[in-house]
Write a protein that binds this DNA or RNA. Structure first.
Lengths: 348, 348
DNA sequence: TATTAGCACTCATCGAAAAGGAGTGCTAAT
DNA sequence: ATTAGCACTCCTTTTCGATGAGTGCTAATA
């Protein structure tokens, strides 16, 4: 990448910042007054011409001001953005009420984030695959149905009805089975349950090995079944606030994407696999892995609920989004989430 | 209400039907050709003038055709609409996959309905208050937490973590508690659990009455907590298909309403309380209890999952929606839902 | 008396033309 | 190297007339 001299950098920064605020092409005269460079608009014009040639800014049409290109935004995010040393107090709105249902927490979080940022937000439930089993319980619900309750680390509770022939299975047997399941599986992560474990388990179960098998299936299923869909969104209608996204064609596509959620999932998965140092990623315009978001920017962060149970938070807004604020919010939130499920919440 | 002579009725019907199809104001000449009345456009014009005076149709502006007023639509829905004797086979798309998780079924249902009708749809989970308890189970998850699992009729499973001091509560006690809870409460509807029951229960629990109390709280809470929010929607973006709703102001409001869901809840509650003979209600325009829907029509139906557990299905579309098709769909769906959870689904 | 042909009138919509204005690029002067 | 000056571009807004669908009314007709 070409090196920009100091003056060009300053001008570029001024252009982008102004554009972030106004959303309108910014002209040379504006910059001439805005910066402390004390240069005439003519000089700025020359520099802008250069910057355009270098690909950092674009002219929507001949006689308009300039707007940042994706490359320009990228440069801004990577090099120009000021790390705001925000007061922690600024995050006061993030008072997450302590609830034991994770689902509730996630819903609250996206909602807050959407309110705070004025963008569309989403969050995925953590991947359970690496979550450790804490407790399993089978119980007989009626003549032909068993209920399997599975509790993972972080008090994530899943349950599944198992239909099976219960002949010859009395309470005592069930108690034994429960004991067996718990002693064998507790503390294991879901993806640690391998064939060896299963075989051993079945052996010990003796005549009830069939049921054990069904239970294991149930565990696998209940945990994976809607993994793809467990994504919560909020503030989708915020996109109407940004004219460049609000024209009905684009808006419709975006809102649809939010409703369907399928695309969001792939977006999120991308983030999870592609992790980086800070854990915060910024996709600007065409950088986004999802076609629908070509005109937006997407900022994502992963959070971790104990060992290996990772989820993703995402924010979708116009390319001229307030990256600083957004990344700041995400950072704080990430920390809060990392903590929230870990420590037992006695101290209320 | 004034009585319309046959000719006026025919003309009104023709106007409405044409408008339902085209969505554009319909003029006298169109009707003159459309109907088998063999009247000139001039005559139609006179009749239309009368119909307007009676309030059944409206002129968007002086030199335009007529469109139905809310009163007109109402008359159409009440008196003019033809009961299509639909083939059952037409409902082939409503193949609801048998799943034991109610949530999944509801999601599938709204989605299908949205696809089938091309309108925005919603469905509420049934009211649990009248659902009968089928099974309760307490289990100790770790040193200081109990897990209460509650199964209602129809295999609706709820659970709740209870934090409490577990000193002096060993496995045996828990077993006893479970037995006690089940014998006392099973078969009762949630709103049948009254003070007497509770008092008796506590007495029997002896020193553990405090825990019983917490359990009961947990039941109440887990059942009511998100009752208000358990509403599933689909096809919100369908509203973009109807120009009269798609202009960004209205669209935004509607989409927001769908995202927030709060308004939908009140809409649904309205239906539940206000029930009628057929169980299908039509709100046309300003008839809607929700301000946001003033420009739409809302059709709702209640379904019942066993005794007293009622939920609501709703469809939201433009006032010129295909009422026949919609009501037909709802009727079929209602029946299917009424049946689906009742019979044990062994026969797969 | 009910229907219809004829006609003037209204008004939304569309397109072309004109005005306005923001901003550029270039040239020549500093 | 910087800047003042100016012609030029092109988007946006406004204006204006043409178009056409549709009405309401009147007078003629069956």
């Amino acid at each position: 990448m070409e090196h920009l001299d100091e003056r060009k950098t300053k001008i570029l920064k001024a252009i982008i910042q102004t554009y972030l605020e106004t959303g309108e092409p910014v002209g040379s005269r504006t910059i001439s007054k805005y910066t402390d460079l004390n240069l005439s608009s003519a000089t700025i014009r020359n520099e802008m011409s250069d910057l355009e040639e270098l690909g950092y800014i674009v002219q929507p049409h001949t006689s308009a001001g300039r707007i940042p290109s994706d490359k320009g935004y990228r440069f801004y995010v990577d090099n120009l953005m000021e790390e705001k040393d925000r007061e922690v107090s600024e995050m006061k709105d993030f008072v997450i009420e302590r609830t034991e249902k994770m689902e509730q927490v996630l819903k609250q979080v996206v909602k807050m984030l959407a309110t705070n940022t004025n963008y569309a937000t989403m969050i995925t439930a953590p991947q359970y695959q690496q979550g450790k089993l804490k407790f399993i319980q089978l119980s007989q619900v009626d003549e032909e149905q068993l209920l399997a309750v599975i509790v993972l680390e972080g008090n994530i509770v899943k349950n599944k009805i198992i239909r099976t022939d219960l002949n010859g299975l009395d309470n005592e047997h069930i108690l034994k089975l429960n004991l067996l399941l718990n002693t064998s599986l507790n503390g294991l992560a879901l993806n640690q349950i391998n064939l060896a474990t299963i075989a051993k388990l079945k052996e010990q179960a003796g005549i009830h090995s069939e049921i054990v098998s069904k239970v294991l299936d149930a565990i696998a299923e209940s945990v994976s079944e809607d993994e793809d869909l467990e994504i919560y969104t909020s503030g989708a209608t915020n996109i109407f606030k940004y004219p460049e996204l609000a024209d009905s064609g684009r808006a419709q596509q975006l809102i649809s994407a939010f409703e369907e959620k399928q695309q969001l999932v792939s977006l999120m998965n991308d983030t999870l696999s592609d992790e980086e140092n800070t854990g915060i990623q910024v996709y600007i315009g065409s950088e986004s892995p999802v076609q629908t978001m070509k005109d937006c920017s997407v900022v994502t962060a992963t959070y971790e609920l104990g060992e290996g149970m990772k989820g993703t938070i995402g924010i979708i807004g116009p390319k001229r989004m307030d990256y600083e604020n957004v990344m700041d919010n995400l950072k704080t939130l990430k920390n809060q989430l990392d903590g929230i499920f870990k420590k037992p919440p006695e101290q209320k």
